[in-house]
Simulated assay, not measured.
Amino acid sequence: MINQVYRLVSPRQFEISYKDRSIQSDRVIVRPTNLSICAADQRYYTGTRGEEALSKKLPMALIHEAIGEIVYDPDGEFQPGTKVVMVPNTPIEQDEIVAENYLRSSKFRSSGYDGFMQDYVFLKRDRFVVLPENVNQHVAAFTELITIAMHSITRFERLAHSRRKTFAVWGDGNLGYITSLILKKKFQGCKVISCGKTQYKLDNFSFVDEVYNINEIPENVTFDHAFECVGGIGSQYAINQIIDHISPEGSISILGVSEYPVEINTRMVLEKGITLIGSSRSGYHDFKNTVDFLSENPDVVDYLETLIGSVNEIRCIQDVINAFEKDLSTSWGKTVMEWKI
């Protein structure tokens, strides 16, 4: 069969390419239905990723946050119409120590490898997770972003000490919101503090215990552990502010991505015995844990609906461009594309 792939060929310019794929294989064929735009996709779309990276990775289909419906399973295990969330990380080897999302050999969709902007996606059986029938599809579209927070919390549980009464999260964006929400739900009775710089965004954090503007944090505020969800050059200030307030031997989980090196007050990291935990992307087990978590906690899904910034019907390439341009001017929430092209 001929599969149409919608690739970014240069900033703000998409073209259709055609790939001949055989259905006589072990791959499950999935038709994307709902896609979500990520900041990383925007860096490619706008050309701010850097000329060297663009020259190496384009042309490329964007989007790594998506759900779809199974249209064909050669083994008959899954019925057509079954809703699934697709896993963008694609490992080509296994390691008994290193997780699939940290293996340097793994491929990642929409990062040098075609993403989900295609008519059909051909997946191995460990590259998707079946969704509950009554799932909010617009929330499910950005499941991958939720798995980022879930993965970081899983790593925290394995690496940090056991005093877990108070958490702080720096960042008032989508990832900060999701991380704060999961922490509050997973650690029953814990105190969660959210810190950010934009008041109208912080107003959405109604489920946490305390909210602070980063310029107005009292000196006596302390916590056992923290999660940095800021990214960019702002992560430098966030991490150093966390170091000032965190209790000795606490852990700082770093999730924010920065294009450039940032300076950290290592003297106080040493004096306080702080553990820094880096987290990036996620794998199949994180998707499975996230889908199970959302199935067991429907109230969390209700809160996540707050992150639906806009929903855009896609029937042609111009609709894709319009959605990306709208996303650039959206200051809160996720831009979802209903894939009807």
Rank of each mutant, 00 (worst) to 15 (best):
R27P: 11
R7A: 13
Q199L: 01
H285Q: 14
S282H: 10
L175I: 09
N297K: 04
A226G: 06
D73G: 07
G273W: 05
K57F: 13
G333R: 03
V336D: 05
S247I: 09
G250C: 09
Q118P: 01
Q24R: 15
K124V: 05
G283T: 09
E157C: 15
T266I: 14
A66F: 10
I317N: 12
D224Y: 10
V221P: 04
V98C: 05
T90Y: 06
V230L: 01
V291P: 08
L202D: 00
E77G: 07
A99C: 13
L54Q: 11
G81V: 13
E263G: 03
C229S: 04
E305F: 02
A168D: 02
N215R: 15
G115I: 02
V84L: 09
F293V: 11
V135A: 13
R12V: 03
I252Y: 09
I148D: 14
G333D: 03
M117Q: 06
E216G: 01
N34F: 10
A238Q: 00
I29L: 12
L58R: 08
E210H: 06
K83Q: 14
Y177S: 05
S17Y: 14
R12I: 03
I63S: 05
I63K: 05
V84K: 09
A238Y: 00
G68A: 11
F122R: 13
M60C: 14
G231F: 01
N136V: 08
N322K: 06
E69S: 13
L131N: 10
E263F: 03
I193K: 00
T90M: 07
Q79N: 13
C38R: 02
Y72N: 12
V130Y: 10
G273I: 07
N297Y: 06
Y120K: 07
W170Y: 11
S295H: 07
Q118M: 04
P248S: 13
S152I: 06
E313R: 12
I243K: 09
S295C: 07
W332F: 05
V121G: 00
G250L: 06
V135Y: 13
G76S: 04
G231H: 01
G273V: 08
E219W: 07
Y260Q: 08
F122D: 13
P32R: 06
Q79D: 11
C195R: 04
T143Q: 01
R49H: 12
A53M: 12
D126V: 07
G273Q: 13
V85H: 05
G196V: 00
I67L: 14
P32H: 11
L202N: 00
S206Y: 00
Q318M: 06
V87T: 09
V71L: 10
T48H: 10
D114T: 04
M337A: 02
E77I: 15
M117R: 03
D286I: 05
R49L: 14
F122A: 15
R163C: 10
Q79K: 15
I92G: 04
V257K: 01
F14C: 03
W170F: 11
G250W: 09
S106L: 02
E338R: 11
N174A: 05
N134L: 11
V130C: 11
L123E: 02
G81H: 08
A160K: 09
D292C: 12
D302N: 14
K184W: 09
T198I: 05
T82Q: 10
